[in-house]
Simulated scan of single mutants.
Amino acid sequence: MAAELEEVKLFGVWGSPFSRRVDIALKLKGVQYSYFEENLDDKSALLLKYNPIHKKVPVLVHNEKPVAESLIILEYIDETWKDNPFLPNDPYERAIARFWARFIEDKCMPALWKALWSNEEERDKAAEEASELLQILENELKDKKFFGGETVGLVDIAADFIGFWLGVFQEIVGLRLLTNEKLPKLYKWTQEFANHSVIKENLPPKDKLHAFFKGAIEGLAASK
């Protein structure tokens, strides 16, 4: 009976890879939830109530208890709903998965963002740094289907930007950071990730994402 009384809400933004991490995790777990789309230029009173410190998305609210920050939310989801676990049982393997999730969050994401959004003078250096980090992920993936092995795990979900968004950005800005020629294992992983039955249904429409960020990049360039 308790499960029937559970109330799960997610506050997010449609094009945010951080929000989509939580969408994907909830869908993989089969959790029913209500989704609230936020406008970060005009944040709702509920978002400010549930995340008064950072005032950012995503925010998961479980029975009126809010949890913020996407990686923390992913672990909360995994510990709360036990089916289809994202983390291994072995303590060492769990620690390793957490390490790589943080590596993606703290190292890869800032480097990729800088490479994609830098002006032409800074782009080559930023792209070189981003490529080196992607090579590290290529080496870590080895010959596994997913970072989690045969099933999607914490690291795969944390790497959703690399699995989908990066390809869209590469088309817009003309960079070729992640290709089948340069990083065949990681490239194959992106195909497995984006075509996973549950994940595919919960990624933003590629054409909409392309148009939105192309407009944002062109607007930024015009303002310089």
Rank of each mutant, 00 (worst) to 15 (best):
R94C: 02
T179V: 15
F103G: 14
A68G: 13
P52W: 06
W165Y: 12
R123F: 00
K82W: 11
F99S: 01
D156R: 04
E122M: 02
R21F: 00
D83I: 11
K43I: 05
Y187H: 15
I136V: 11
A3E: 12
K144V: 04
A216R: 13
P184K: 08
L154N: 05
L186D: 06
K114L: 03
E93S: 13
W14E: 15
G167T: 10
K82I: 14
L178I: 15
P66I: 04
Y33S: 03
L186T: 08
A101K: 00
V61N: 07
S19K: 03
L46K: 10
L178G: 15
R176G: 14
P205F: 08
K56L: 03
L209T: 02
L46Y: 06
E218L: 09
K200A: 03
E138K: 01
P52T: 02
E4G: 13
N195G: 12
A127Q: 15
L28C: 00
W81T: 13
K56Y: 04
E7Q: 11
R94I: 07
E171H: 13
L141V: 14
K43C: 02
N180T: 10
F146N: 03
L175H: 15
E129A: 03
K107H: 12
K82D: 10
I96H: 12
E138V: 02
D23K: 02
K56D: 10
W189C: 04
E150W: 05
E120G: 04
E171T: 11
G30H: 07
E201T: 05
G153Q: 02
Y33H: 05
A25E: 08
F99G: 03
K82P: 15
G12Y: 06
L183P: 15
L47V: 14
V59Q: 05
M1W: 14
D83R: 08
S16V: 03
Y50M: 06
D207V: 01
D160W: 00
K182P: 14
Q32V: 06
D23M: 01
I96F: 14
G215M: 01
K188Y: 04
A97C: 13
D42K: 15
G30T: 09
E75S: 06
I73W: 09
A222V: 13
P66T: 03
K49Y: 13
R98F: 14
D124E: 09
Q191F: 06
K214P: 03
P66Y: 12
K208G: 01
S16P: 10
R94D: 01
Y187V: 13
K188S: 11
A101D: 04
K55Q: 11
L154D: 06
A222I: 11
K82S: 12
E132V: 01
A45E: 13
E105V: 08
V67D: 10
F147L: 05
N195I: 06
R102F: 06
N139F: 15
G149W: 10
Y35T: 00
D106H: 09
K82T: 14
R94W: 09
W14S: 08
L60K: 09
N89I: 03
L47G: 14
L183C: 14
E105M: 07
E4D: 15
A211N: 12
Y92A: 02
K142R: 09
N202V: 01
L183E: 12
T151Y: 04
F146Y: 10
K200V: 00
D78N: 10
I157Q: 11
F169P: 08
A159P: 02
N139W: 12
E128D: 05
D124G: 08
L133E: 07
S223I: 13
V198C: 05
E150Y: 07
W117E: 15
I96S: 03
K55E: 09
